[in-house]
Design a protein around this nucleic acid. Structure first.
Ligand SMILES: [Mn+2]
Ligand SMILES: [Mn+2]
Ligand SMILES: [Mn+2]
Ligand SMILES: [Mn+2]
Lengths: 222, 222
DNA sequence: TTTATTTGTTAGATACCTCTAACTTTTATA
DNA sequence: TATAAAAGTTAGAGGTATCTAACAAATAAA
């Protein structure tokens, strides 16, 4: 059934589904794909032909790229594995928030349905990973949370942090430094007209954060 | 320091150390290596040149193959990872005896010292894997047990099973079926002169086992 | 609507890992 | 010791994943 893909092919699918999901227009381009995978457009183009040949992506020459149903299914399986492994590393092995991603990038390619299912059970069926991202279940379904960014919360209002948008190590470390974490209550005390710098309060601690920072914190209204 | 090796290179080193250790004469041959890796001798020969170039194996044209100190160090690290992962799968995820090996073959190539050290701690520093094989520590040291095979135990004597020699799925499943497991006490009731078939008793259960079977069960005297 | 810029594609090359077929060296056997 | 068998090596080739450089198409700007 699952036509044994290489690490590389899996990484292309995973990147494609991320682009397709966040692009809103539900499609991706060659250059965009290449840059996210840190390869040259020519390389990505070759791989796209191969993935099309295998029925995992649909696209025509000079057209936009989409995943087929089969491609989407596989991509979600990889995301599922990635997030379950991140949860394992964080919950059981005491890895920190910013350390889990790189190792999960390797672990997500381990081929064993039994392994990931048993790991999921061992973790007691987690629904979200350490960054607040939803973990797809075996059927590829996951909890969709209505989320806003901290940048959009009005002055005087409170909200709860549920996830981060940027998953880079430097951002994650910065978030920790500011005293923020998943499920923390955040109160917006003020916002500058000039540059949208915000003063926020978390656990009684006040911090000043930039617009760029606030745009990468996902929150829900209280 | 550790010049990032490919999965393939790591598998060659791991196979080499096994051959070198079990060959007693402490060396291996090209054909032998190739057959263990399920590749053709020509392929193994190419890789040997490459590993020699990298300073991991020492050998001269038409001569015998040995690992260098650096090659030995890396090979032991891979074995360490393999056995720690097997222990994790068996102890924490309820994998059975015969299921752990194949998944560990993949997991052993994950590159993260932190991961394997934290996993080792999580498992409370195990010294032996589920098959009774010793787990090298970070320095590559491991417990050496003086072991004999069941085939060598005299009639009327008892011994304790400490490991299996053959790690194949079919053998492991057979061992379970016979009612045997690590740390079981085995009493040798009789042995046929003709074909060395043995009658043994384990946990009050009597079984008849072949010489080939007995030669693959490692035991220690009581 | 012509031109410039961005985006995407092709051609040709390299590194890695593998193979088959032919050859050479070493070891075992008669 | 001459010959046969086994073990090991080389040459030549193919698939995958990558690159650079040159080209083509689509889109944005003038
Ligand atoms: Mn991640
Ligand atoms: Mn995550
Ligand atoms: Mn094993
Ligand atoms: Mn084992």
């Amino acid at each position: 059934m699952n036509a044994l893909l290489s690490h590389t092919e899996e990484n292309y699918l995973k990147t494609l589904i991320k682009l397709v999901l966040e692009n809103a227009n539900s499609e991706a381009g060659t250059n965009e794909l290449a840059s996210h995978l840190a390869v040259k457009p020519a390389t990505a183009n070759d791989m796209l032909k191969k993935l099309k040949e295998k029925g995992l992506v649909s696209y025509e020459k000079y057209g936009k790229i989409n995943l087929t149903n089969q491609g989407t299914k596989i991509a979600l399986e990889i995301i599922r594995k990635h997030r379950i492994w991140e949860t394992f590393l964080y919950e059981k092995l005491d890895f920190s928030w910013d350390e889990v991603h790189d190792v999960a990038e390797q672990l997500e390619h381990i081929k064993s349905d039994k392994l990931i299912d048993k790991l999921e059970k061992f973790l007691d069926y987690p629904e979200f990973d350490p960054h607040g991202d939803p973990i797809p279940n075996k059927e590829g379904k996951f909890k969709v949370q209505h989320k806003t960014t901290l940048a959009e919360i009005a002055v005087g209002k409170s909200c709860k942090m549920i996830a981060v948008k940027d998953n880079s190590n430097s951002f994650l470390q910065y978030v920790v430094k500011v005293g923020l974490g998943i499920n923390n209550e955040i109160k917006v005390l003020s916002r500058q007209d000039y540059d949208a710098m915000m003063l926020i309060e978390v656990n009684g601690q006040q911090s000043s954060v930039s617009q760029k920072f606030a745009e990468n914190i996902f929150v829900v209204f209280d």
